[in-house]
Design a protein around this nucleic acid. Structure first.
Length: 274
DNA sequence: ACCCAGGAAATTC
DNA sequence: GAATTTCATGGG
């Protein structure tokens, strides 16, 4: 159960885990000059740390190969995507320079769907609290002691009153409809995985409480539909100020990464998008 | 078209 | 330290 996998990567843990695409990773104390995160994904707990471009996965080679290599999208050539996006516009190039180590995580679709339902009208610290309580109350206990994300079959069996301690407010009923829709096949996550993004947009929005923004986040972060481009208030302002008149379609199949660059850049320069 | 639900964090006063 | 803003979706 112990072991280590060390590799040099273009991945930046902080940029990737704190850009709002995931909610179950937390920074933990680490030696000087090192940054370390602990989190749960894919029914596994992991500690991962970084010093410069050297990333250490505190897990067995087998677990790294089976789960984490893919989860952190280490098989994708980000250098090439990065330079393609930089060619589109100097502004995008400037934005990309602020977080060149962002990767799009390959998260579990169901967990992403629930997480982004809970994310609506909320800020990241609060979303993390909601997700954590959902797992703590209803998720299975993993060997490490951490809690897995509860599957649709677990949540579909609940009533609104069961979700009260999660303190999700009006979002609780959305979670239940999502769980029931997935469980009874009204929304087929496998089909969404294999189909074009337009199908996923239509299907996910059949769920009560899922609109365009939540659907787009789920498709990008949960289904690795990299052409997804979630448009929230921040992104609308950022696009208007930084790239006026530009259609996100211009970013093509890597729109999602462009969105991450712009989002991160805008938050670091709020004055530029005001 | 507008306001609220149910909060907590971030921002501004 | 207190008031105000933020925020995605659906319903009234």
């Amino acid at each position: 159960m112990n072991g280590e996998v060390v590799l040099a990567a273009d991945l930046n843990l902080q940029e990737t885990l704190e850009c709002g695409q995931c909610f179950r990773w937390n920074a933990v104390p680490a030696p000087d000059g090192e940054i370390r995160y602990q989190g749960v994904a894919l029914q596994n707990e992991l500690t991962v740390s970084q010093r410069g471009d050297r990333v250490t996965f505190h897990c067995t080679k087998e677990d790294f190969q089976q789960y984490w290599k893919s989860y952190f999208d280490l098989g994708t050539n980000y250098g090439e995507i990065h330079s393609q996006l930089c060619d589109i516009s100097p502004v995008l190039s400037e934005a990309a320079a602020y977080a060149p180590g962002i990767h799009i995580l390959r998260q579990d679709p169901w967990e992403a769907l629930c997480s982004f339902i809970l994310s609506q009208n909320n800020n990241i610290p609060r979303i993390k609290g909601l997700v954590e309580r959902l797992c703590r109350y209803f998720g299975a206990r993993l060997p490490s002691g951490a809690f897995a994300f509860p599957g649709p079959e677990v949540l579909a069996a609940l009533e609104i009153s069961d979700l009260v301690p999660v303190r999700a407010g009006f979002r609780a009923k959305y979670i239940l409809d999502a769980a029931r829709s997935v469980l009874n096949g009204a929304v087929d996550l496998k089909k969404i995985r294999e189909a074009p993004i337009s199908y996923g947009r239509r299907e996910l929005q059949k769920i009560y409480g899922v609109g365009p923004k939540v659907a787009e986040c789920t498709l990008l972060y949960g289904f690795y539909k990299t052409e997804g481009f979630p448009m929230d208030v921040w992104m609308r302002r950022a696009m208007q100020k930084l790239l006026p008149g530009l259609d996100p379609e211009t970013f093509g199949k890597n729109a999602g990464l462009a969105q991450q660059y712009l989002f991160h850049y805008s938050r670091m320069h709020p004055d530029l998008v005001a």
